[in-house]
Amino acid sequence: MQGFCFSNKFKVAGMVKQRIQLFDIARGLAIFMVISAHTLTIFKGTSISNFLFLGNLAVFFVVSGYFYRPKSLMQIVKTGVNTLLIPYFIAAIGYLLIRGFIGVVFLHHEFITTAKWISLIYANGVLATTPTGYELTAQIGAIWFLPTMFIANIIFQLIMRLSKRWEQRLVILVMFILGVGLAHFGLWPWSFQTALQVQVFYMFGYELAQYVKQHQTLIFTKWWVGWSSFTVWLVSSWFTWYGLNQGRAEHIVLATIAAAASAIAILSFSYFIERHWVWLTKFLAYAGEFSLIILIIHTTDLNLTDMYLQQFMDRQAPGTRLMMYISLTILRIGYATGLTWIILKFRLLRKWLVQRDFPITK
């Protein structure tokens, strides 16, 4: 298992497998929260929506920091191209081509416009204004996360080259403040302001790994740690939201603390699931292992159908509408995971989206 060294009692094959599975379960829970947050728009502006958006992405950055290992700049760039940028451009271009085909053949209008290509290059997940004042009238969806993580990984690797821990922490703080400041000027390419802010989550994950290494205990498996983190996450959702794509929040410091707490709560709950709900473990671990493909499928689905589904649901009675939104969430989780399983049966698609050993290797 990458990330850190356990003592001999943690190095046995069974234990290593469990630890990997634990983090896969957490990623599975997080990607399903992404789907839920995007689907349950009936709760937009409420603490339920805040809760989902506070906790659906931070865990990915925390886990990356947890498994940090020094790499050369060329190695981290090559790895990022293979694992993040190639899937991003395959998904984005594929979506535009599909949408363009539907637009021309069935809706009889041109869909692939200049605005759409700009959104692909800019990788904006929301409609927003750039720092230069240009209005982004199209968006690429949830896969904005992939180019942002590519940049964030490189930044964290460079920061961790500093020899002293206090220097690393100071630069992380500066990066966070700078990211918050840049967010007030608009949405930057590849959500650069967010890539700076999430350095806090990388460092949080790294510090967590160092604690585990030093004390030989997974701190987040303790029940009181899980419940305390969950409480911080829950209570914070009553006061703030977190638009991570834009790096904006009503109370940015509170939102950041809550997002970090959500990662601990999700890891703690994942540990509970692994120990007590064996029937759910395999499903969530599979979703976590292939969360990138699920994200791509969800983004394509969201971009193609969400506007029409929302228009339909808004015409329903309030009670019926709520049940329909909940049902749609469950359906989206189910078929995104099911389509992932089907896609992985095709060798070429598996090579493009999972093995990703071209055009460069790690």
Rank of each mutant, 00 (worst) to 15 (best):
F67P: 13
N8M: 09
A183Y: 01
G288Y: 03
W238I: 12
Y202R: 03
I90M: 12
N56K: 07
I118D: 09
K345V: 03
W352Q: 09
L120G: 00
M203D: 10
H109D: 12
S237V: 10
E250H: 12
A92K: 00
Y211A: 13
F312I: 10
G133K: 04
L267F: 05
I155C: 01
L309M: 12
T281F: 04
L73F: 14
I102N: 03
N245G: 03
A287K: 02
A115I: 05
V16H: 05
T300F: 07
N245V: 00
I20P: 04
L40H: 08
M313V: 11
Y95W: 03
T148E: 01
T329I: 05
F156Q: 02
I20M: 08
I118K: 11
G14S: 04
V77H: 05
A115W: 02
L178T: 07
L218H: 09
L304C: 15
G45N: 11
L348C: 14
I42E: 10
A91R: 00
L292G: 01
V354T: 10
V354Q: 05
L331R: 05
M149Q: 02
L196A: 03
A287H: 02
G141D: 00
L328M: 10
W238G: 08
F272T: 14
V354H: 01
K164P: 09
I219Y: 03
Y286D: 11
S291N: 15
F201S: 09
T299D: 12
S72A: 13
D24A: 09
T256Y: 04
I48M: 04
V232L: 14
L196H: 01
A26H: 11
V63N: 04
F106A: 05
Q355N: 08
T41H: 10
M15S: 13
R332H: 11
E274M: 14
T114Q: 15
V126E: 00
D357Q: 14
L84H: 00
V174T: 13
L280K: 08
L234C: 10
L302Y: 14
K351I: 06
G28C: 07
L170M: 14
V16T: 06
L85Y: 01
S229D: 04
R19L: 11
L162G: 12
I42R: 03
L234H: 06
M33G: 13
T217D: 07
Y242K: 05
A138I: 08
L73N: 08
F230R: 07
T240R: 06
S47E: 14
T79P: 06
G338V: 13
L57Y: 12
M203A: 10
I102Q: 06
K44D: 15
Q18G: 06
A123L: 00
K351V: 11
P131R: 04
V180D: 01
D306H: 15
A13C: 07
I252E: 04
I172G: 04
I93H: 04
V212L: 05
T281N: 11
P147N: 00
L127N: 11
K116Y: 07
D357S: 13
T137H: 07
L353M: 03
A30P: 07
F312N: 01
S236C: 06
I42H: 09
L107K: 09
I360K: 07
T114D: 15
L328Y: 05
F312L: 08
H215G: 06
W117T: 02
L146A: 01
I296C: 07
Y68C: 10
W188Q: 02
W224D: 14
I343E: 04
F89V: 11
L339E: 11
I121M: 02
A123W: 00
L349T: 03
L84S: 03
Y325Q: 02
F106Q: 07
M74Y: 15
A317T: 09
